[in-house]
Amino acid sequence: MALSEKELQHFKHAIAVPGMGVAMQEKLKDTRILVVGAGGLGCPVIQYLSSSGVGVLGIADYGVINDEDMHRQPIFQVQDLRKHKAKMAASRLWASNPFTKHYPLLLQVKPQNILQLLEGMDFVIDCSQNIATHLVINDACMAQGKPFMIGEVHNWVSWWAGYNIAPASGDAAASYRCSLELTDEYRNFDAGIIGVTHGATGMMMVNEILKYIAGVPDGLANKLYSMNYLHNAYLSHTIYSNAAVIADTLEKGLLTAEEYGLDIVPDIED
């Protein structure tokens, strides 16, 4: 889709980056991304996806804004307390970039609605930091052939990875279920959340998404990245596709919420 004169002006500095240009900005405008979670990790992800010019941004979150969370969700303001995250995020993002269509989805992602949410989307980013939700999204994206990304932050350490993206080598694309043993090594559920580690990780995730949309080979394909912010240790892991795991996932399809261990919350009446 061609850019308007106002869009050309708005994104002129991004367009000027070598390797980007008008064609890349138009490609971003044609991209539709679903982001699950508008919390500490989701906030920087949706902010930078929007400011980069992604055409359609679906924001799925059923939660409300709490005072104790604002240190890692700077998109929100004190007057937003107790309001729905997705709705307020869409409003704030439009105020800085009216060219992106921001759709707030005030719902919990679950087996009953995930396939509908995936319709028309080009990419899914799971910022829920919830294993059961990761599995729902994995199984649905594998069934629908959708590329997706998952990220988590635990204290000083974070990880993010691309799934269902075939590498240029011709190897099979890996799923989230193929990397469970590796991701478990990065989980530390001690109390405490640092805002800056979420912000930094979210920006790293968006950087990889922009490279993926631009066609940079193998940045996300079968890769898991981690960052230890306390010790400045950045690692890159190769994820290997497990054919048996993927075949089993495709055969079973979506499971029930109970089988995923997903606690269902009541639908929001808004």
Rank of each mutant, 00 (worst) to 15 (best):
G219K: 13
E208A: 14
G202R: 00
G195Q: 07
L3A: 07
F148Y: 15
P74H: 14
V36Q: 04
G21Q: 05
Q77T: 13
D80E: 10
E251D: 14
V216I: 14
V265C: 06
M227N: 09
N228R: 09
M149Q: 10
S158L: 09
G261C: 01
A214L: 12
L235F: 03
A200R: 02
I65C: 02
K29P: 02
Y229A: 04
G253E: 12
V78F: 11
S50K: 03
C178N: 00
L182V: 05
Y240W: 10
A16Y: 02
A200W: 02
L235C: 03
E251S: 15
F148C: 10
G145W: 13
L117I: 04
D248L: 04
A214F: 01
R92W: 13
D218S: 09
L105C: 04
I268Y: 04
K83P: 02
T183F: 05
L262C: 06
K27M: 10
D263E: 15
V245P: 01
V36T: 01
H102N: 11
M1N: 01
C127S: 00
V265I: 14
K211A: 09
P104S: 09
V245G: 05
S158N: 11
P104L: 11
T249A: 08
S96M: 15
D190T: 08
Q112T: 12
K223C: 13
V157I: 12
R177Q: 13
K29Q: 00
S128L: 04
K223S: 08
N228T: 04
P266Y: 01
G145P: 02
M142D: 05
R177M: 03
V78D: 10
V64Q: 10
G195H: 00
K12E: 11
D270I: 14
K223Q: 15
D263L: 15
N97Y: 00
A90W: 04
E258H: 08
A16Q: 11
G58S: 12
V22Q: 05
D218E: 11
H102R: 06
G145N: 12
S158D: 06
F11E: 03
T31C: 10
V157T: 14
I193A: 15
G39N: 07
G19A: 03
V64F: 00
A132R: 02
E258S: 13
G55W: 00
A161K: 05
P167N: 08
F189E: 08
W94K: 15
G253L: 11
A89V: 13
A172P: 02
A244K: 15
L250Q: 14
I114H: 07
V124M: 07
C141M: 12
E5D: 10
G162T: 01
L262D: 10
H134A: 01
R92G: 06
H237A: 06
L210H: 07
A14D: 10
M88G: 05
M227Y: 15
C178S: 09
A132W: 02
V216H: 13
L235G: 09
N97K: 08
I15E: 08
